[in-house]
Design a protein around this nucleic acid. Structure first.
Lengths: 225, 225
DNA sequence: GTAGTCTCGACTGTCGGCAATATCCACACA
DNA sequence: TGTGTGGATATTGCCGACAGTCGAGACTAC
């Protein structure tokens, strides 16, 4: 789910990208911006008319959101925005940690040979943290992890990791849970360093680091179930 | 009103399942049975007429097959059956191993308390092996692993694991790679035993066991790329 | 003979409409 | 008051049709 370079297209006929992709983008943004709230229904035809399209591409877009577990659909009943809580974080992050543990092992050699992608993200993350730019912090933090997974050079692993919808869920957790983004930059720098030094513990470090997000979420909401 | 306890399926008119599900089933079976071969195109309309349905549900079914990586689609070009080789196994199984490692840790307590689901599958697997019933061997072998994941009680983990399409790919590897199903029953029995005894090594055992499948595939095809 | 262009057929992506299904509410009945 | 029944309404699931796109092959120019 890399952000497209968003080419400055003619607003009238910008249909160069499959319609369903655009719709998916709109829906995701709607969810992130709070346009739709948790538990709320998403009516296919309503969205369709709103976007001046037909029902079909909207359906397909919704199916994709379903695989990201952003919405839930029941046959003949339709789709609704998933209620979201710490519980979800607690389920997602162990899986992420497991995947990234594998990734770290597979990517160890590659990243020891050329750790520049990681270092680039660490720098950008530090800069964003200094500026207090939350959106950029999320972006580069996620991108750091994506680089590790990418370096593992395993398309199934990449695909599976992406299917967790990391940036969307991170953004949501910040929005709905007010999750604190504490000094993650430090963690990341240490991990990059460990990769460079072929530290055999790097996998565990990365895994633990991911699991820390859950604690952050837990801590920031001692009440939300 | 509470959710009804899943009334026992009317055998006569079970056409109550969404059409797209039935179509997906037909397509998967078609792939497993060799009705479509690797690299071959799958034309939406052709399938639709063949099954006496419209194009729409076929499209939706194809999308699901795409998330299982059974087919590949290119915009405006359509879907084709993925070419399949040892390479795919080599990519899938490390991911599976990582997920099941997590699962084993999360499920350890539950399964130590009640290992009967595992033991049931081990027995069934042994029986099937004795009979030489390959289909049943696959079924119970997969079901064993699914029980572990299920016991972890983490819906994201379950969902992610399922998205690997374990039984389909296992069946395919047997069909296309003539993968040998050697005495897996023994492994499974040992793992079940380890769970019962709260062996802290059980996660690693399970993970190694999964990775063994790759070696089996490798060994059985020293030629297929 | 080769490179470029045109045309044609096949197929996907999208549309608007219709039937099937779920939900809601008023109303009758015990 | 609580419970069942019938119909009205909102929405999904599916259909048949059409426009846009892609690729193969014929045709032309050199």
């Amino acid at each position: 789910m890399v952000d497209l370079p968003q080419l400055p297209e003619d607003p009238s006929k910008l249909a160069r990208e499959p319609l369903r992709e655009q719709i998916r983008q709109v829906l995701v943004e709607g969810l992130l911006s709070g346009r739709w709230k948790p538990g709320e229904r998403i009516v296919e035809r309503r969205v369709a008319t709103e976007l001046k399209v037909s029902q079909a591409p909207v359906r397909e877009a919704l199916r994709e959101l379903e695989t990201l577990r952003l919405i839930e659909t029941v046959p003949n009943k339709g789709a609704r925005v998933r209620a979201f809580g710490v519980q979800d974080m607690a389920e997602i992050y162990p899986v992420r940690a497991g995947l990234e543990l594998v990734a770290a092992q597979l990517a160890a050699d590659t990243l020891a040979g050329d750790p520049t992608p990681l270092e680039r993200e660490v720098e950008a993350l530090q800069a964003a943290t200094a500026r207090g730019d939350v959106a950029e912090q999320i972006r580069h933090s996620v991108e750091f992890h994506r680089e590790v997974v990418r370096a593992a050079d395993n398309s199934v692993l990449m695909h599976t990791w992406e299917s967790l919808g990391v940036e969307v869920w991170t953004a949501l957790s910040v929005r709905w849970l007010d999750m604190e983004l504490h000094a993650k930059a430090v963690d990341h720098a240490q991990i990059a360093e460990a990769f460079r030094n072929r530290d055999p513990e790097v996998g565990q470090m990365l895994s633990d680091h991911v699991l820390n997000y859950v604690e952050a979420a837990m801590r920031s909401t001692e009440k939300t179930p």
